[in-house]
């Protein structure tokens, strides 16, 4: 499954990347699995997305949870808790 990943704010800087297109292995079907797959990259990915770290994920521009399903062509954004207003 191909998805577009976007990163914002502190996580964009920690990962050193703003956006990427990735082809996910077949077994990666939801946000929780994607997060574990990204942690497998090690380094900042493992540190920032480890259990207990505060980050948010949106799928197709809607806030998502670990069980939110992914789909072909999804736009998945990973970012820190928001601080606007």
């Amino acid at each position: 499954m191909n998805v577009r990943l976007l990163y914002f704010a502190r996580l964009r800087e920690a990962f050193g990347i703003q956006a990427e297109e990735v082809a996910l292995p077949e077994e990666i079907r939801d946000v929780g699995a994607l997060s574990r797959w990204l942690q497998g990259r090690g380094g900042a990915w493992r540190a920032e997305l480890a259990p207990g770290r505060a980050y948010r994920v949106a799928v197709d521009q809607e806030m998502a949870g670990a069980s939110t399903r992914l789909h072909e062509g999804a736009e998945v954004a990973v970012f820190p808790p928001v601080t606007g207003g």
Partner: peptide
């Protein structure tokens, strides 16, 4: 609207201080 905007709208603040720039943590 303000309470929800502060916790649900995707904005992030990075402030400039004498010690350098830093991302503001959620409260």
């Amino acid at each position: 609207l303000m309470d929800y905007l502060k916790t649900r709208a995707p904005f992030w603040k990075k402030e400039r201080t004498p010690g350098g720039s830093r991302w503001v943590d959620a409260r």
